[in-house]
């Protein structure tokens, strides 16, 4: 555990150092930039609330990817599942008008179903025809993106009448998530979803079977796990999490489907899963860390004139460097431990 934490922090440290080098080359003050980044994402309760709200889609798509990767299926369809979740929540939200206590669960269910449905297409194709879910989900991303874009083009079937930019009508007010104090309710929904998925994954028999299959499918099959059925369930759950991310973004932020909604969130989720090594708790932590970077980035741009896109580069560097240093450091630490062991046994022999 301590070693894991050490490699993670070392990775982030090295990545921030490399980012600082880029900043210095461009003639800026790295400490000032990083200071602004931290102050504007975590400085006070207000900013922390925004960071947490921004973390919701990142953590949910991250959990979607982590759950899938750790259980076997290579689901890279988060962008498409995210969009289908957002679409489902929007569709129900504009056609039904109920009081909030009914409306919110309904829209959440719609978002879950939308994402699960889109992942289910890939799972079905894998099940029926043995088509690799890796490529199918990637292709379905583009299809979902183009499909939703078509729905809301000006004069499209779901476009708001008279709108000047591509967008759908707004969802009914009952489906909109407000704030408790400073904090948006979508944070609570995300936390509940994260707890539920953690519990299922780590504390139930089904989750145990998934983990075994993620480590070694053949072993799981020989041990009597229903591997094919589990594959299906994991794909649906993973899709549902990504769909929930899309739905919550609609319910708490845009209140409608707009063009390019959540363009980067879903891929960031894959990145977070990768850097967290598909561990669920680590995914939540990295999700918050990346959200802090992204939230601070906008303010940083205002204060220091460093373009907020810098953060996109920094994120990728963090992923690469953390993963590489994790492997490298653990090998190094193992070797050091071995050497110490040898020395001890040499002393013992004398």
């Amino acid at each position: 555990m301590a070693q894991k934490l050490f490699s993670a922090l070392a990775g982030i440290g090295i990545a921030l150092g490399m980012g600082a080098v880029i900043l210095v080359i461009e003639g800026r003050q790295p400490f000032e930039v990083y200071g602004a980044l931290a102050a504007l994402s975590l400085g006070d309760a207000d900013k922390l609330a925004i960071t947490l709200k921004n973390a919701v889609p990142l953590i949910l798509t991250g959990l979607s990817a982590s759950l899938a990767f750790a259980s076997g299926p290579v689901n890279l369809g988060q962008p498409g599942q995210f969009l289908m979740g957002a679409l489902a929540a929007t569709l129900v939200g504009i056609s039904v008008d109920l009081p909030a206590p009914l409306m919110v669960p309904l829209l959440i269910a719609a978002a879950l179903a939308g994402g699960a449905m889109w992942a289910g297409v890939a799972a079905l194709l894998r099940h029926a025809f043995n088509m690799s879910e890796f490529i199918v989900t990637l292709m379905l991303n583009s299809v979902a993106e183009l499909f939703t874009a078509w729905l809301i083009t000006i004069d499209g079937p779901l476009a708001e009448a008279g709108a000047l930019s591509p967008r759908s009508p707004a969802i009914a007010s009952g489906g909109r998530l407000g704030d408790i104090g400073e904090f948006n309710i979508s944070i609570v929904v995300m936390a509940l979803a994260a707890l539920a998925i953690w519990y299922v994954f780590h504390r139930t028999r089904a989750g145990y079977e998934w983990r075994i299959a993620g480590q070694n499918t053949l072993f799981a099959r020989l041990g009597g796990c229903p591997v094919d059925r589990n594959f299906f369930i994991v794909m649906l759950l993973s899709g549902a999490l990504a769909g929930l991310a899309g739905g919550l973004l609609v319910m708490s932020g845009t209140y409608r489907l707009i063009r390019g909604i959540g363009a980067n969130y879903a891929w960031d989720g894959v990145m977070i899963a990768v850097v967290a090594n598909s561990a669920l708790a680590a995914t939540v932590l990295y999700g918050m860390f990346f959200a802090a970077l992204q939230t601070g980035a906008l303010g940083m741009e205002l204060l220091t004139a460093v373009p907020s896109e810098f953060i996109q580069v920094l994120q990728a560097v963090i992923v690469l460097v953390s993963v590489a240093s994790r492997g490298y450091l653990s090998a190094l630490l193992d070797r050091l431990a071995l050497r110490r062991l040898h020395r001890h046994s040499a002393i013992a022999r004398q």
Partner: peptide, 21 residues
């Protein structure tokens, strides 16, 4: 010796971030 899949994903995102930046 980083995982090839991880390297590929990260490089794709790096490419998209770096070109935008």
């Amino acid at each position: 010796k980083t995982d090839e899949f991880v390297t590929g994903i990260a490089l794709n995102l790096f490419a998209s971030g770096a070109t935008t930046y």
